[in-house]
């Protein structure tokens, strides 16, 4: 007969891992991965807790990687010198941000501040590049999904730009 204390601990750990798998599965970057591959990703992600008002990163900081919200919410804020901060968006449970930083170290284009006490997962470029070298099949899968997300975003931006241009032409004409 097993020790009930350890059974509870193990059950809780398993349940938490499964929760994280579920959350990761809902992020487009990891949606194509099977459970074995997700467990490899789980080994290199960082779990952090932020109090309300605490910055996750600041505008202008070197980009390091992406974050996924497990619980809570964050505010995406644009901070300009001499101007008041503008909230661009509020992201809640399951949302992700900063994924472009998986590709390069370009400065962050906005600040992200915890809107309430939040639990957040971080997946960072150094760990991703290491994974890409050690497990190329898995790395390429993630990279491919990331390309699809970025491609989709570019397509939508192009559509919006075209619509805007057409609108301007219509107004001017």
């Amino acid at each position: 007969m097993g020790n009930p204390i350890w059974e509870v601990v193990q059950f809780r750990k398993k349940r938490t891992d499964e929760d994280i798998f579920k959350i990761l599965k809902n992020v487009p970057t990891f949606s194509e991965l099977n459970s074995k591959e997700l467990s490899e990703v789980e080994k290199i992600i960082h779990r952090r807790e932020y109090k309300k008002g605490e910055p996750i990163f600041r505008m202008g900081d070197p980009g390091l990687g992406m974050y996924i919200i497990i619980t809570g919410s964050v505010n995406i804020i644009e901070e300009r010198e001499g101007e008041s901060a503008t909230t661009l968006a509020v992201l809640k449970d399951g949302a992700f941000f900063g994924d472009l930083a998986l590709l390069d170290e370009s400065p962050r284009s906005a600040s992200v501040i915890a809107g309430e006490n939040s639990e957040i997962l971080g997946f960072f470029r150094p760990d991703f590049l290491d994974l890409l070298y050690r497990k190329p099949r898995l790395g390429i899968k993630i990279l491919f999904s990331l390309s699809k997300v970025i491609g989709e975003r570019l397509r939508r931006t192009n559509e919006q730009l075209s619509a805007l241009k057409a609108n301007e032409g219509y107004t001017n004409g």
Binding site: R48, E54, P55, L64
Partner: peptide
Amino acid sequence: PNKYFEMSLN
């Protein structure tokens, strides 16, 4: 601490 987290990791 969160304040130094990204910098330390990088």
